[in-house]
């Protein structure tokens, strides 16, 4: 379990992370999503004790990372695929890491096999592709068989087969009761990998909810309605918190009511409807909706350049 309380990091006059509170629970995959420069990597580095928070605390399994007697056995992290001396072979890199915790050579071979680095383990990391670097980073994270795993953009640079492998791996790790905290800029990937989502924008937590709630959140559930009397139906449906959009000649999109309520309203005023389709927002849409406000709000009050709402590889 990872717990952040009032976690803040200020660089000069720029607040990278502004007093965030969140908890990452065991037994599920928690996704960490946010646009470029939102503070994802900074937060992860603070969890690993590499950056000191300006204020606030973050604990892993109840203790600050540095206080654990065997840190690599508590928490494994892929923060950056380049956290390795490129003149050393993958095997020797892992061997040196393992030596700090008396992790046996057998385990080094295991993680090399698990991550599919068997053929290149004796070669210098210098010649590694981005994908192989990611695999080596994941191997290092798994070395201590930790209860908590942090992966910053693990699928970056992986081929489709690697992406599926990471997805299965993190789901498997979470199913074993481990805490998995994963950042990714690929929202479609998050949608199929994560159980829970923490959305961060401009150093603040915008959303912290199960992924289903974020996708089908209030104001997000939409229903496509086809009727031959659109005007009449619109009058009936109009009301508090309900918005109806005319999409086409006989096609309406209704927000704020579920299909049952729409059907009842249509029945009551004897309007025939011939399509009633619940629409699920994609994670992209939900995310854009969430971060749009955050970005606009900040753009208005700061003189800095507006931050694009696209998710980033940060």
């Amino acid at each position: 379990m990872i717990e952040a309380q009032g976690l803040t990091k200020v660089y000069g006059d720029k607040t990278a992370v502004g007093g965030v509170n969140f908890t990452v629970h065991a037994g599920r995959v928690t996704g960490f999503l946010g646009p470029n420069g939102a503070g994802k990597s900074t937060t992860m580095r603070m969890i690993m004790g590499l950056d000191t928070p300006t204020a606030g605390t973050v604990t892993v399994n109840g203790e600050p990372f540095a206080r654990h007697s065997a840190p690599l056995r508590e928490i494994g992290a892929l923060l950056d695929a380049k956290a390795v001396h490129t003149g050393r072979s993958a095997y020797n890199h892992l061997l040196a890491m393992a030596a700090t915790h008396s992790i046996p050579k057998k385990r080094v071979h295991e993680v090399i096999e698990m991550t599919g680095l068997g053929d290149v383990a004796r070669k210098k990391v210098k010649g590694f592709s981005l994908g192989m670097g990611q695999r080596l980073g994941i191997a290092a994270a798994l070395l201590g068989d930790p209860q908590t795993i942090i992966l910053d953009e693990p699928v970056n640079g992986l081929d489709p087969e690697g992406v599926v492998w990471v997805r299965n791996l993190v789901r498997f790790l979470a199913s074993e009761g481990r805490t998995v905290f994963l950042s990714s800029h690929l929202m479609s990937e998050m949608a199929v990998t994560a159980d829970h989502l923490i959305v961060i924008g401009r150093g603040r937590i915008i959303a912290d909810a199960p992924i289903k709630d974020i996708i089908t959140g209030k104001g997000q559930s939409r229903t496509r309605v086809r009727t031959d009397q659109p005007d009449q139906l619109m009058n009936v449906l109009a009301g508090n918190g309900v918005s109806v959009e005319v999409q086409d000649h006989e096609l309406l999109e209704v927000k704020g009511l579920d299909p049952r309520q729409i059907a009842r309203a249509a029945l009551d005023c004897r309007v025939m409807i011939y399509e009633l389709t619940p629409l699920q927002a994609s994670l992209e849409e939900a995310y854009m909706e969430l971060t749009k406000d955050e970005v606009e709000y900040h753009s208005m009050i700061t003189t800095g350049a507006p931050v694009p709402a696209q998710p980033g590889g940060n």
Partner: peptide, 16 residues
């Protein structure tokens, strides 16, 4: 080289 290669992140994650 620990800092220029990023190895420091691995080193100091293992020895915080």
């Amino acid at each position: 080289s620990e800092f220029t290669t990023g190895m420091a992140r691995s080193t100091f994650a293992a020895v915080p």
